[in-house]
């Protein structure tokens, strides 16, 4: 059967009219979608008309086709316009809603402030080629004392200061024994930073904890000298404490370094003029350090005539206290939510 072109044109006119109404009145995205399916969908009304064009007398086909395309274009245009209108309506303030009401929150997790200090320190030394290694917390007196040139009758090896688990087994009193372990296991060049817990029989008070974090550093190679040591530490100080921070090296004593140095940085709180944080000195001591003592090289089987190096140790808990203005070390270890949340 040959359909009349005129009746299809009528249908197209009706589709256009009803379609525009349906689209225009759609109040939400779902209604709009069903209007689209009804008129513009694969099995929709317009598609139905198009599928019949082939049955129209040849002379009218062109008109009907053009008209169908025109209607399609109009409806599509209206559809897009309505879609945009609905979207912006959804985003616009609605009468009667107070947009100053609080947002729906979510819990924010975070690492401990001491972890953050440890990571930053290790990352800065990573720029200088240091790798991060770890060691055991239960340690032999050999690694903890003897290999580090600390005789066992030295005050540092005293029962008063050390947790002995057994006659020759201690909870390490510093992370320095990892120096000896690393040097026994690897040949130079050695560049490591060693974060970890250390233990001393200090009672738990605002500035001491019987278990505390330490970061040990060690660099050994041919030709490593005091000048290089100082340059590395100064690089660290500038990057960790800020470019305006001054540092100074002054004589100190450790059995496993010589020359030994304590490193002070200018007090960030008072900029060197003296305050309670720096005990009115203008300086805050951040590390003990020095050139590795040849006796340590001998203990681990390195040739002290060939290799030189430097070592340093820092207390990240104390640095975190200075950095955040935390007055009591015990706060770091209480696990109190409102404390930890401040650093997340």
């Amino acid at each position: 059967m040959i359909a009349a072109g005129a009746s299809l044109l009528d249908r197209l006119a009706a589709i256009e009219e009803k379609g525009l109404v349906a689209i225009g009145e759609a109040a939400d995205a779902a209604t709009l979608e069903s209007a689209r399916v009804e008129y513009l969908g694969r099995n929709g009304q317009l598609a139905d008309v198009m599928s019949r064009i082939g049955t129209v007398e040849a002379a009218a086909r062109r008109d009907v086709g053009q008209r169908a395309n025109a209607v399609k274009k109009v409806l599509r245009g209206a559809l897009e316009e309505r879609m945009k209108a609905l979207e912006s309506a959804a985003a616009a303030p609605v009468d009667g809603i107070d947009l100053t009401l609080p947002a729906r929150g979510r819990w924010v997790g975070g690492v401990h402030p001491v972890t953050r200090v440890i990571d930053e320190i290790c990352e800065i030394f990573a720029e200088l080629g240091f790798t991060r290694v770890l060691g055991p917390e239960i340690e032999s007196t050999w690694y903890n004392f003897t290999a580090l040139n600390i005789p066992l009758d030295h005050p540092a090896a005293d029962m008063m200061d050390t947790f002995y688990l057994d006659k020759d087994v201690v909870l390490r009193t510093h992370t320095s024994p990892v120096q000896a372990r690393v040097m026994e296991a690897f040949r130079p060049p050695v560049r490591v930073v060693v974060p970890g817990l250390a233990y001393r029989r200090d009672s738990f008070d605002p500035s001491h904890a019987p278990a505390f974090e330490q970061i040990e550093g060690l660099a050994v190679d041919e030709g490593v000298d005091f000048v290089e040591f100082r340059a590395a530490i100064e690089h660290f100080v500038r990057h960790f404490f800020g470019p305006g921070t001054a540092s100074r090296f002054r004589p100190s004593f450790y059995p496993f370094t010589e020359p030994s140095a304590e490193v002070d940085v200018s007090c960030a709180v008072c900029a060197g003029s003296g305050c309670s944080t720096c005990k009115r000195t203008g300086w805050i001591t951040i590390m003990g350090s020095g050139m590795v003592d040849p006796a340590v090289f001998e203990a681990v089987g390195y040739d002290p005539e060939r290799y030189t190096g430097y070592a340093f140790g820092m207390g990240p808990a104390r640095i975190a206290m200075v950095r955040h203005g935390i007055p009591d070390m015990r706060l770091l270890y209480e696990g109190e939510m409102s404390f930890l949340q401040q650093f997340a």
């Binding site: 080629g129 991060r132 770890l134 690897f186 100082r230 020359p259």
Partner: peptide
Amino acid sequence: RRVGYDAGAGQDRRFRPSAVPADPRV
């Protein structure tokens, strides 16, 4: 210490890599 710990400033030193691999636990 008599010469001063700040002696010898302004010298450059080369970058040195480490022969020690990072601990996987990190």
